[in-house]
């Protein structure tokens, strides 16, 4: 009887303590944004890993479209050939890096061709220069942007997020943002240089719609990859996936380690329980 009560109390307390952080985290980013559809990402869930082809396509979108305004200061060329990423070969990365000039005080003319160890060169020399070129708005750095955005789920959806390990709020938001450009509704006051976006907080965004159908000619298809549509929807998925990888380049190895660790802990706990039971055998408690 006593132990029943303890079990009930334990469940209640455990539930309560789990609910605490859950309730707290409900207040995610993107507070005043409308409902954001969840995309079926290949890297979602505990078994999820990146799709190499998607990352290569996303990288191409970033390189040809986004990179003209958005920096990615923590992104190194060498990351592109690391395991679990877009899967470029080291030779490809070396050739790619050589196409870019990076600042270097010790080189002639203060710039030189990049090597794989270099970081991705920023499009502007300073934040102020970036603002001047963009009508006062600062294009955010892409390095961890996919983790710097979130969606707030209504009750009780968020409670399940702890058990499904839902970590894709940021990319869901970015995908929704890139596909969320619309005509401003009647009477909505837009300043010059602003555009109406359904999911952007306040709806007035300074970034012009960056993607149009056909703007990027996917190299992956030519190289024998699967034929993918060259549409805004596809581009925004691919570049969002790429941004997730930028923010979390070692996601696959992290999850793989997690399986090994948890399997070990479960087996170890079983052995510990057996030992504990053996020791306590015959002691009424």
């Amino acid at each position: 009887m006593m132990s029943n009560r303890i079990v009930i109390a334990a469940i209640a307390l455990a539930g309560a303590l789990l609910a605490g952080p859950a309730l707290a985290a409900e207040e995610g980013g993107g507070h005043s944004t409308p409902h954001i559809d969840r995309v079926d990402w290949s890297f979602a869930g505990i078994f999820g890993t990146y799709d190499e082809h998607q990352l290569q396509r996303g990288f191409q979108v970033y390189r040809e479209v986004c990179a003209s305004c958005h920096s990615a200061r923590l992104f190194a060329f060498r990351n592109l050939s690391e395991e679990g990423g877009p899967g470029f070969s080291e030779a490809q990365v070396r050739a790619l890096a050589a196409e870019y000039q990076v600042p270097d005080d010790s080189a002639d003319g203060e710039t030189r061709a990049a090597i794989p160890a270099d970081r991705w060169p920023s499009p502007y020399p300073s934040d102020q220069a970036a603002r001047d070129a963009n009508g006062g708005a600062l294009p955010p750095d892409f390095s961890v942007l996919a983790k710097a955005r979130g969606v707030s789920d209504p009750f009780p959806t968020w409670a399940f997020n702890y058990f499904t390990a839902y970590q894709e709020g940021g990319v869901d938001y970015i995908h929704a943002l890139l596909t969320g450009y619309e005509e401003a509704p009647e009477g909505f006051d837009l300043q010059p240089g602003q555009y109406y976006n359904e999911v952007y907080p306040g709806h007035a965004i300074s970034m012009p719609p960056p993607l149009v159908d056909g703007v990027v000619d996917y190299a992956d298809a030519e190289a024998g990859g699967a034929e993918v549509p060259e549409t805004v929807e596809q581009y925004s998925r691919d570049v969002s996936a790429f941004m997730m990888w930028l923010a979390e380049p070692h996601l696959a190895s992290r999850k793989a380690a997690g399986f090994r660790v948890i399997l070990f802990l479960v087996l170890f706990a079983g052995l510990m329980y057996a030992t504990k039971s053996r020791i306590w055998k015959g002691i009424e408690h």
């Binding site: 942007l145 390990a165 970590q167 380690a257």
Partner: peptide
């Protein structure tokens, strides 16, 4: 106790934090 601990570390390391702290 280390089992839920590991769950968060390996499968949802950011879920207990706030996205704004990545800015």
């Amino acid at each position: 106790f280390l089992i839920p601990f590991a769950w968060f570390v390996f499968f949802a390391p950011d879920i207990l934090g706030h996205p704004d702290n990545y800015i």
